[in-house]
Simulated assay, not measured.
Amino acid sequence: MPERKAAPKPRRERPREEAKPRAQKPRAAPPPSRASQASNTQSTQGAAPRSDVSPARWQGQIQARLNRFKRTPRGGGQGLVTVSFTITGSGAASGIRLARSSGNPVLDQAALDLVRRASPFPAPPSGGNVPITVPINYTR
């Protein structure tokens, strides 16, 4: 007995309704946190923003930020570059310079570019300018 295939049912297309823009309900802003209230108080007094972290933890944050932005340059090889710079009260890096060269100009330039890329840094706990010297190790 030959098999019979069922004829496909014709599709009915429904007319599409045009999308109507939904009215957005106004949302109330969440209450400010203690940290933002403290920073608002300080900024209104004209003082530089202060961080609530310990100096040791802040230095760890600086090193972590540098590591996040570190790139090993092509043809750079290996070496240790020491960079000095100042972190301003707002977290910007200024006065970026080599404290000790690796002997390889490609690595030296990469270290200077690293600090520029990673800026701005977290604000110093003291709220003022903080000079910092950091070794940057490039390995393959």
Rank of each mutant, 00 (worst) to 15 (best):
L112M: 10
V134T: 13
G60R: 00
A19E: 14
N40Q: 14
M1G: 13
I62G: 02
R16Y: 06
P122T: 05
G127Y: 03
S84F: 04
S43W: 12
K20R: 15
G127L: 02
R71K: 14
V83P: 06
A38G: 12
K9V: 14
R97D: 06
T133R: 04
N67P: 05
S94N: 09
D108N: 14
A118K: 04
G77I: 01
L98N: 03
Q78K: 07
A93G: 04
Y138D: 01
L98Q: 04
A47N: 13
K25W: 06
K25N: 13
P26F: 04
R71P: 10
A47C: 12
T139Q: 14
R68C: 03
A38P: 13
S102R: 04
S101M: 06
R68I: 05
A7S: 13
S33T: 15
G60L: 01
P122G: 01
S84Q: 11
E17V: 15
R116H: 11
R11Y: 07
E17H: 14
A99E: 08
N40G: 10
R116V: 06
A38K: 15
R57Y: 10
Q78D: 09
A47R: 15
I132N: 00
D52V: 09
R71W: 06
L112H: 08
F85C: 05
W58N: 04
R100M: 08
V83L: 04
Q109W: 05
A110K: 05
G128C: 01
V115S: 02
D113K: 13
S126N: 12
L80I: 09
G128V: 07
S33I: 10
N40V: 10
E18H: 11
A23Y: 11
Q59N: 11
R68S: 12
N67A: 14
G103T: 01
P135G: 02
R100W: 02
Q45A: 15
P73Q: 03
F69P: 08
G95A: 03
P122N: 04
Q59P: 08
A19S: 15
P21S: 07
S54K: 07
A111M: 08
K70G: 08
N137F: 08
P31H: 09
S33P: 15
G77C: 10
T82A: 07
K70R: 15
I96D: 00
P8K: 00
A110S: 12
S84P: 07
V83W: 02
R97Y: 01
R11V: 14
S94C: 03
P120L: 01
W58I: 02
D52K: 07
L80T: 12
G103W: 02
P32Y: 06
S39W: 12
P26L: 11
S94T: 15
D52T: 11
Y138A: 01
P122R: 01
R27Q: 14
Q24E: 14
L107W: 07
Q61T: 05
P135S: 02
I136S: 02
A111Q: 09
T82L: 06
V134M: 01
G103F: 00
T133S: 13
R116P: 10
T88N: 03
